[in-house]
Amino acid sequence: MHVVGKLSVKKPIFNRPKKKTNIKEKIAYICIYAVALITMLALISIIGYVLLNGIQHINLEFFTQEPRSMGRKGGIFSIIVGTIYLTIVSIAIATPIGIGAAIYLTEYAKENKLIKIIRFGTETLAGIPSIIFGLFGFVFFVIFLGFRWSILSGGLTLAIMILPTLIRTTEESIKTVPNSLREGSLALGATKWQTIVKVVLPSSIPGILTGLILGIGRAIGETAAIMLTAGSSLGIPESIMDPTRTMSVHVYLLASEGLSKEKTFATASVLIIFVLIINLSANMVANKYIKKLI
């Protein structure tokens, strides 16, 4: 009763003068709308431009044939294989390390100097230009360890590049798992490890997937670091020790050497479609997973 009495004394909100705020509201709305529009336009025009120029040159042969005469003719079969191969290798290396590190940092580590240094390290790694990673990979994996230009060297280099983002996103999603769930599990007599594996990680899978998508995006989009570590061979890689060329590298080389405009845009189109498919399917997996939980 008290509350009702108090409220009715105050002027109702909708009777207050509103002209000034209304104009401000409108301006803010228009600005935000415009900004959103610009973002969308940029995205659509880039994708649209590439697809318009590329899609007419894509046919079945483009997917099934190997490139001929340096890529001027033929398809990109071996390059698609190389892209997938390299991406899988780098993700396979980065995922266990990244998730493990994130678990350590969130669940086990106590806030101390060492942890601060590790955090600082991962953050700095995330900001280092990829060419530096490439240079390191070249000197360390390719030459010092003698892996030569190979999918292994490239995969390891990309894995190091992906790690910071993966650790970060995994950490963030592990942190969003409510503590009450951990307590619930521990109170049933579960060990810490059981709790992490059976309760914490399953609940943070959508976040981990996001990290993986970002990582895959970075791996697929990389050029310089890959050329330095995996080479730019046009052949089909037969083992992890073979050199290869990814689609991004192919686009870069075709464009920079002016070999073929059609093939450049066709490859770029395939690359875009590739990334779209990966994003959409990862989203679908995450949504399906979330639906199963709630």
């Binding site: 619930g184 109170a187 309760v199």
Partner: peptide, 17 residues
């Protein structure tokens, strides 16, 4: 100990399973 002494919390905390 925790097997023998169970606990129910203030806010229901079922696992997302």
């Amino acid at each position: 100990l925790r097997k023998n002494v169970g606990m129910v919390f203030q806010k229901p905390n079922p696992f997302p399973k």
